[in-house]
Write a protein that binds this DNA or RNA. Structure first.
Lengths: 141, 141
DNA sequence: GTCACTGCAAATAATTTGCAAAGCA
DNA sequence: TGCTTTGCAAATTATTTGCAGTGAC
């Protein structure tokens, strides 16, 4: 379980470091995401935050989520890329995905990645993919 | 490297089994994806296939990609979900993602997932996530 | 011959952006 | 006070869908 207070503290520090302002909207959005254990989308975050801050707008939620990701406080689940890309290589593999520019690099690994046993409880397993997210050398400058 | 001819053979067999027709559009789209080693998006596939089949339309490419995914011949890279979802848990973890309904389940694992050494050549690593794709029990019926 | 598939055009839905006002540092 | 951020509304962009004609089986 995530400690929400710690998260807010992180936000405070990282905003200061990045010359970004600590607005009540950012606090509420982060608080919401940190306190649920599912993976809400922007609309869900919006609906929930609206309960305690009725004046917030959906586009601020979108912008705030982007800011929080830039600060490294939240991550997208399976959706770093704007456009959907396809791969015909079905063997388990590994991708490095840049969260800035969306570049995808194949990473070749010797040892086979196996799906955890628990996976099979959820349904039929078709593919496993270890994704490593970060900022690529080009975007780091 | 993927053997394109084998892929087309698979397509033939799976179409027959699924009562789907083996159209030249499906053959060309699959041939294209199987023969490149990057991860093209729909627009790129379209541009490339248009060279050998000028009459093909972009929406057929979209529909074909969906069909190929249903047949288990191609997979989406980091984009199974229509809406972007966010997660504030930054510890390496594991998700089961249903390619039909988009449901996301956390999978709890004991052994830490480490990013392959090669990852660090591509840039600064921020997060690792093992994703297991498949069809959840609900969608299997 | 039948029914799935295609191409066209129009619709949809998520996300982004320009701008003026507001508020954190 | 100055510059980042917000809310509003309008725009953008990837993707989807209805429909009539076409072609695989």
């Amino acid at each position: 379980m995530i400690n929400v207070e710690d998260k807010i503290q992180e936000l405070k520090e990282r905003c200061a470091k990045a010359n970004m302002r600590l607005t009540p909207q950012r606090i509420e959005v982060l608080k919401m995401i940190a306190s649920v254990n599912n993976h809400p989308d922007a609309e869900t975050v919006y609906a929930e935050v609206k309960k305690v801050m009725p004046s917030i707008s959906l586009d601020t939620v979108y912008r705030t989520l982007t800011s929080l990701e830039d600060l490294g406080l939240v991550f997208k689940v399976d959706n770093e890329l704007a456009k959907t890309r396809y791969d015909a290589d079905l063997t388990p593999h590994c991708h490095f995905i840049c969260i800035k520019c969306g570049a995808v690099h194949d990473i070749h690994i010797d040892n086979y990645i196996e799906a955890p046993k628990e996976s099979y409880d959820y349904g039929k397993v078709l593919q496993t993919n270890l994704q490593v997210k970060g900022i690529c050398n080009k975007c780091r400058g």
